[in-house]
Design a binder for these strands. Structure first.
Lengths: 222, 222
DNA sequence: CGGGGATGGATTGTATACAATTCAATCGCG
DNA sequence: CGCGATTGAATTGTATACAATCCATCCCCG
């Protein structure tokens, strides 16, 4: 297992995931210059697939590429946190409204969602928790039956993860998060869009404020 | 001057614009295979910058790339029109709300917007009209002072343009469009978010329904 | 005839090599 | 001593060449 397994997918695919991971976890801090040759050597590939990976991350908003000047990890100011959560609220509100409209078709998946939330309350390992949070919101998006919305939310989620990681390195997930998730899932399952949206609104506001408070106390650097 | 002027920007930059244009205008129809070598020869470049251009268009949702199978122009079904307009309404609603909140800071640009709309009523050339419509909504997005929202809307706009082009090849812009724009701009300029959103909602619904009716009568292919 | 597997052309994926651009440090001139 | 031009290393952008993959066709065997 130490030797590389034979590749099934193109290098640029795995590169995107590896680079994204490195950025989300803060291994490459905001503002860091991403020199193509260095990265290529680090990942054991040539610059060609690496450049494509950077282009895709640019599309996700994780890196900024200036022509002839190279790529940097996108800086992240407190205002970005506010803006991102504002946008996310609008998108997830739409997702919930559409999901609640078709709740009859969703009985199974919403039950799964709520059960997942309840199980998550017991979880402790940080990567697991991140994954569960991500999965919950991804499923919620999928329930909207709007692929374009799903894509838009997927793109934003990378940014959100970056923000959350900066925060949750020190603090722990408040248990309230999972109760919010359960409440949202239940409301959607009963077609109560307004209730679900209301809960989501406070859910996101609290997350955002907690992150902002943490950032400010730490001195929001770039 | 017939010879190519010295390039200022990288080839891939101009390529993205050229390819996007070709897709938006329908020169490359939905579902068309985009063979790298053919395109590279057509544009007089190698495949390397072309591949990067395709990656960026993938990020905009204009093309779909399957590993080892190549790229195609993204298909566009009637449901996509519904989903896109649903998403667009949510995004522009947020833009308007935020813009209306800071209307005091926006006096100049909203005046420009409204004036632009009035001038547009007289316009006749199709490319001009498209540009004016695009500019209006882009300025509206910018007025929100949320760069992430601007980026999200910018990505969606490519899709919208594709949809609109399919429609407006035969029909003409109804003059009502510009009156809607003017009304929206005025409402924003006075901080009346609700009124602006209401007008936007009908504006988009009408556009969407007109496009759907046209698509259905023509037989919605791919 | 009918189906499973080999085979070759077409196409994508990647490495290497080279050209073009940027940026900073240095030099020359006033 | 100050300031603009110059030069060169570092880095990005692109072309060419080659390897890997896919897909349709054909062949062989039942």
């Amino acid at each position: 297992m130490t030797a590389a397994a034979p590749r099934l997918e193109p290098r640029s695919e795995t590169l995107v995931d590896a680079l994204r991971e490195s950025i989300l976890t803060g291994r490459y801090a905001p503002g860091t210059r991403l020199v193509q040759e260095d990265l290529a050597e680090a990942f054991g590939v040539s610059r060609i697939p690496l450049r494509e990976a950077l282009r895709r991350l640019e599309g996700e908003g994780l890196v900024v590429i200036s022509p002839n000047r190279g790529a940097i990890v996108r800086p992240l100011a407190p205002k970005d946190v506010v803006d991102l959560y504002d946008l996310r609220l609008a998108l997830e509100t739409l997702a919930i409204r559409r999901a609640a409209e078709r709740y009859a078709d969703l009985r199974e998946s919403t039950k799964t969602l709520a059960a997942q939330a309840r199980r998550a309350i017991a979880a402790r390992a940080m990567p697991t928790i991140f994954g569960l949070d991500r999965d919950f919101h991804a499923e919620l998006a999928a329930a909207s039956d709007n692929p374009h919305l799903v894509a838009a939310l997927g793109g934003q989620w990378s940014q959100i993860m970056r923000v959350m990681h900066a925060y949750f390195q020190v603090a722990n997930y408040p248990a309230a998060v999972w109760h919010d998730h359960e409440a949202i899932a239940d409301a959607v399952a009963h077609g109560e869009g307004d209730a679900a949206v209301a809960r989501l609104t406070t859910h996101l506001s609290e997350s955002r404020d907690a992150i902002l408070a943490h950032l400010r106390s730490n001195g929001g650097r770039a």
